[in-house]
Amino acid sequence: MDLNTKFTPQNWPEHAEQATMEGKNKFVGFWIFLSCEVVLFASLFATYLALKDSGPAGMDLAKYSTKALYELPLAFAMTMILLTSSLTSVYAMYHMKNFNFKGVQTWMGITVILGLCFLGLEIYEFYHYVHAGFGYRHSAFSSAFFTLVGTHGLHVIIGLVWISCLIFRNMKRGLNLYNAPKYFVASLYWHFIDVVWVFIFTVVYLMGVLG
């Protein structure tokens, strides 16, 4: 069967993303990639936990500690935005199952908008810290913090560029077995970004304000 075969809602396969050998391989390969990402983020989390609140002798902990720096309302807003964007990408996959390409594009578009809002808040947060004197080279604590949260932010940027490219490149193509796996793995990636964030808001922000 040709990858560009036209489908109807009646003959669209239930698991379109795994209907071709290429789709199956992408599916498993991408999950294995995600398991490697688990290890990458684990190393950054462990480094952060080992180095938090540490820095050069005489570092002002009243000003530059997890307790003094983090603001929960901002972290809460970011968490809600990212969790919601996870649901919107689930909606996109729901419409993919029903062969509703417009639905897929719309919900993926909403996911991108929410992702951009999240990214905006993260940039604001970093800007705020740097202006408060807490730059990347300030201390072991600051570099561990920016590397961990920044790597997550980089993943958000990659996800946004990726999903935007999918939306624009497939605008006129419609849904077929060529792009169904592409949309599916992009949504998996977006969920994974959320998985990492769940640990970031817990380990960095919530446990941070507790000292």
């Binding site: 498993v28 999950w31 294995i32 398991s35 290890v39 684990a42 462990a46």
Partner: peptide, 19 residues
């Protein structure tokens, strides 16, 4: 997939333990 994900989680745990 499950093997790799939970294997990754196990390796992640050793990082935390070590650090």
């Amino acid at each position: 997939i499950s093997f790799f994900m939970w294997g990754g989680a196990l390796i992640a745990f050793t990082f935390f333990l070590c650090f």
